[in-house]
């Protein structure tokens, strides 16, 4: 194996004890970081050093570290999940940075995402939205016959694309208005495109939008920052579909 390449970094990380405390960017220098590391492994190294020196480690969310769970996420130099497209923070590798780079690392910022500590925010507002309509009701009884519910290939593909959302909240972080439209539109789309989602289709559109508004997210102004920041590449075509679903429901429901 060839010898590993290492880089030296200057990190400016948002440190805040809790939502009531005052927060500020703290500067750390971190040397000899292997470019084979992921971003979170880099933070692990920093935390090891902080703990050994007797300081509080930087709190950050993570779970799978495989880009599938949606737990990780921070804003790196103004971009959620960092500069690479369709990449979660845990899958972002340090080879994309150069020695001497300054990385400003901040939590996702939105009124609806309350800060917990440092880079950790509470994204349970998404759960509230899901509870408002992100489900299908299935009657019990004998199993459906296979292939009795035909789904066109196009719809199946588009539903799968929408369902790729991992609920990380990068769309909210990226949106200049802290809107949750890409997330909500992904959930609404995956159901609207499949027959299983049709019974509650109209109520779902109204209820999920209502929950989204009540949680304090902003309004979409079609800035398209969400789709370029989404680690799963969800398209704002889903937002257009959400708008259609809302329009149809708002007009047709009594």
């Amino acid at each position: 194996m060839s010898s590993a390449i290492t880089i030296d970094l200057i990190l400016k990380i948002w440190r805040q004890q809790n939502i009531h405390a005052r927060g500020a960017l703290q500067t750390y220098t971190l040397n000899d970081i292997s470019t084979d590391m992921s971003f979170l492994e880099m933070l692990d190294v920093l935390n090891d050093q902080l703990v050994l020196a007797g300081y509080d480690p930087v709190a950050f969310d993570h779970d799978c570290r495989e880009g599938i769970c949606g737990m990780c996420g921070a804003v790196v130099n103004g971009q959620p999940h960092g500069p690479e497209t369709e990449t979660t923070l845990c899958q972002l590798h340090m080879r994309h940075f150069k020695t001497g780079d300054t990385l400003v690392i901040e939590p996702f910022r939105a009124r609806a995402f309350k800060l917990v500590k440092d880079l950790v925010v509470d994204r349970s507002a998404f759960d509230t939205i899901i509870q408002a309509g992100g489900y299908v009701s299935v009657n019990t009884g004998g199993a459906q016959d296979a292939n009795s519910l035909p789904v066109s290939q196009k719809n199946a593909e588009e539903a799968m694309d929408a369902a790729a959302c991992i609920g990380c909240g990068a769309c909210v972080a990226a949106c200049p208005n802290a809107a949750a439209m890409l997330f909500v539109s992904g959930k609404i789309s995956q159901f609207a495109l499949l027959p299983q989602g049709h019974p509650e289709r109209r109520e779902r559109a109204l209820n999920m939008v209502k929950a989204m508004d009540e949680e304090g997210f902003g309004n979409c102004t079609n800035e398209r920052e969400c789709e370029v920041s989404c680690p799963k590449g969800l398209s704002i075509r889903n937002i257009a579909r959400l708008n259609r679903e809302f329009l149809k429901a708002a007009i047709s429901l009594p």
Binding site: L25, N77, V104, R109, R111, A112, N177, G216, G218, E225
Partner: peptide, 13 residues
């Protein structure tokens, strides 16, 4: 109102 605290670095994607 939806973003009470702004980012220190803002960078369009």
């Amino acid at each position: 109102f939806a973003r009470p605290q702004r980012y220190a670095v803002s960078q369009s994607s």
